[in-house]
């Protein structure tokens, strides 16, 4: 495990975080820090606790132990809505669309509350998020009628509408065609270039490597590798959890 970046300019710090449900330990002793502007990828086998880690960061789940510091503020005990106001945007691996609202209204929800905008400013922010995520053509479609892939893009659109400083992405590339994946990578690279800090869980490693500056590998609820993407991918530990112990 490499040492976390210096605390002074970290946007996010995860300190000794643990999460358990009764006797079931999902996360144990997670430590890492993300400097502002960095894009971090998270890889790891199914059930490693990746989504739970995002939930603990954005507040959908409360950490059992440890602390989450966002922008030098201890947010460990704060609800997800407060963290959204503070600048955390999050997508869900299993999409959670507001099915009776249109795609635009879904984004408007994030723009009005997460970004705290009113009236025309909220409308524009929502439209901007739709444009960025390629959802403009579907703006008037009720979200309940979207197919799965569009629901995943809607997750991205909504998160972007909150005008996040830290964007938490949970497997948004899975199932996309080559071309769709390329355009998604381009979008996220653009967001990264604009200064948004990104934490991205993804099984499509190729997409991940095209964007991230740093890779973290999670297995059985602990961090087993953290560093430069190519080094992490070639480390024996990571290869072992992905490909089996024989390697």
């Amino acid at each position: 495990m490499s040492a976390p970046a210096e605390t002074a300019n970290s946007l996010l710090e995860v300190n000794s975080v643990a999460k358990s449900y009764g006797a079931l330990h999902i996360l144990t002793e997670i430590n890492f820090a993300v400097p502002a502007g960095e894009a971090v990828g998270i890889v790891g086998p199914n059930g490693a606790g990746k989504s739970t880690l995002l939930s603990v960061i954005n507040g959908t789940e409360r950490a059992t132990a440890g602390s989450v510091i966002f922008d030098r503020r201890d947010v460990t005990k704060l609800g997800p809505e407060v963290r959204a106001h503070a600048g955390m945007g999050r997508t869900f691996q299993i999409p959670r669309p507001f099915t009776h609202l249109t795609v635009f209204e879904n984004a408007l929800s994030g723009a009005s509350y997460g970004a705290g905008l009113h009236g025309k400013a909220a409308d524009e922010q929502a439209l901007y998020a739709l444009e960025l995520s390629g959802m403009m053509d579907l703006a008037n479609t009720p979200a309940g009628r979207l197919p799965l892939l569009a629901r995943k893009r809607l997750e991205l659109a909504r998160a972007l509408a909150t005008r996040p400083r830290l964007l938490l992405l949970d497997e948004i590339a899975g199932g996309l065609t080559e071309a769709e994946c390329d355009s998604l990578v381009e979008t996220i690279s653009g967001l990264h270039a604009s200064g948004i800090t990104i934490i991205w869980i993804e099984h499509v490693v190729k997409a991940l490597l095209a964007v991230v500056d740093r890779l973290v590998c999670l297995a059985s609820g602990t961090l087993i590798a953290d560093g430069k993407p190519d080094l992490v991918m070639s480390s024996t530990e990571v290869r072992r959890v992905y490909l089996g112990s024989g390697i």
Binding site: N58, T60, E81, R96, F98, L108, S109, G110, Y113, A122
Partner: peptide
């Protein structure tokens, strides 16, 4: 503005909170 919040909460409370709505 609150109409959007109400309908979001009705459809998915977890997502509504993650988007900044004080449920």
């Amino acid at each position: 503005r609150m109409g959007i919040a109400l309908q979001s909460i009705r459809d998915n409370e977890v997502a509504a909170r993650a988007l900044g709505i004080n449920v």
